[in-house]
Nucleic acid binder design. Structure first.
Lengths: 135, 135
DNA sequence: TCGTTATTTAACCTAACGGTTAATTACTAA
DNA sequence: TTAGTAATTAACCGTTAGGTTAAATAACGA
C-alpha cells in the first residue's frame, strides 16, 4: 500500500471491522476486550486492526492498569472528508439534474425549450497523445 | 477485501493512482490513454485500476470508436462522505477545544470560570452519532 | 510469590493487490 | 484486405492483508 496519509487513512477505513471499531469508539474510550466483543474473531486479529488504526492516526491508546484503552482521533477523518468534499458539487449536480427531471415530469412538460446544460458536462475535445511510453 | 459497498469504495480510494484518476475525471470524460499519460506505469496497470473503479461504481465507461471514455459517477463518493460525516462533530469538537485554548492563551486567563467544553468528556455514553450539521 | 486478566508478539497460511510482459480483441482507415 | 490504434486479457510474480494458534509480556490481586 502507498504510504501517503490519505492512502493510509482510506486503507484503514476499507475494513468493516475497523469501521465498526471506529463507530464503537465514537461512544467514548474502550478497552481492547470491549472492542473485540462484538466481532467473531480472535483477540490478536483485533489487536492487529487496532495497530492499523493507531498507525494510521485514527485512534490513540493509553495505559490503564492491564488495559489499553483506545480513543478516537478524528483529525484523519477530517482529512479524508476534505478530499471527498472536492467532489461534492458533482453529486449535488446529479441530484439537481434528477430534481429538475422530476419537476419536468410533474409539470407534464414534453418539450424542453430552455434546457440548460449543467457545468462539468463538457464534451471536451482535447488532443490525444499518440502513444505512451512505459519506462 | 470485504464486499460491502463502503469497503469496496474505500478500498478503491486507498490507491493514489486511482484517486488521481478520479481527480482527472473531475475535469470531464477521458480516454484510457489520457488517464494513463501522467502515470509512470503500463497501460494494463491503468486498465486494472479502471476496472477497480468501475466495479466499485466510482466511474462508468462507454464506447467511442476504439476509445473507452470514462466518466465520474459520484454517488459512491457521497456514500463515503456520508459515513465520514457521522464523525464531523468529533473533529469540530477538537477544533472547538483548540480554539477555546487559544482564546485562553490570548486573554492570559488562568482561572477558567465559564468553561463551556470540559475536556476528555463522554465517559461511556453510547450514542449514535447524529447527522451532519451545516457548517 | 503465584495465579489471573489483558494484551501483544511470533510464526504461519492463504488470498488478494499491484505491477510486469506478451498476446488478443475491437475498431478505424487506407 | 491490411495495417494501425486503443484497450483488455492472460499468465506470471513478489508483497501485503487479514486471519489463525501458541507463546510471551505486563500489570494486578491475594
Amino acid at each position: 500500500m502507498a504510504n501517503d496519509q490519505l492512502s493510509v487513512t482510506f486503507a484503514a477505513l476499507c475494513d468493516p471491522t475497523r469501521r465498526a471499531i471506529i463507530a464503537h469508539l465514537a461512544g467514548g474510550e474502550r478497552s481492547v476486550t470491549e472492542l473485540a466483543e462484538p466481532h467473531a474473531m480472535s483477540l490478536p486479529a483485533i489487536s492487529k486492526h487496532l495497530r492499523v488504526l493507531e498507525q494510521s492516526g485514527l485512534i490513540e491508546r493509553s495505559r490503564d492498569a492491564q488495559r489499553r484503552p483506545c480513543r478516537l482521533k478524528p483529525a484523519r477523518l477530517k482529512e479524508a472528508v476534505d478530499w471527498l468534499e472536492e467532489y461534492r458539487k458533482y453529486w449535488e449536480q446529479s441530484f439537481d439534474r434528477l430534481e429538475a427531471y422530476l419537476q419536468e415530469l410533474q409539470a407534464g412538460k414534453r418539450a424542453l425549450d430552455g434546457k440548460k446544460r449543467p457545468a462539468g458536462d463538457q464534451p471536451d475535445k482535447r488532443k490525444r497523445p499518440a502513444s505512451r511510453k512505459a519506462p
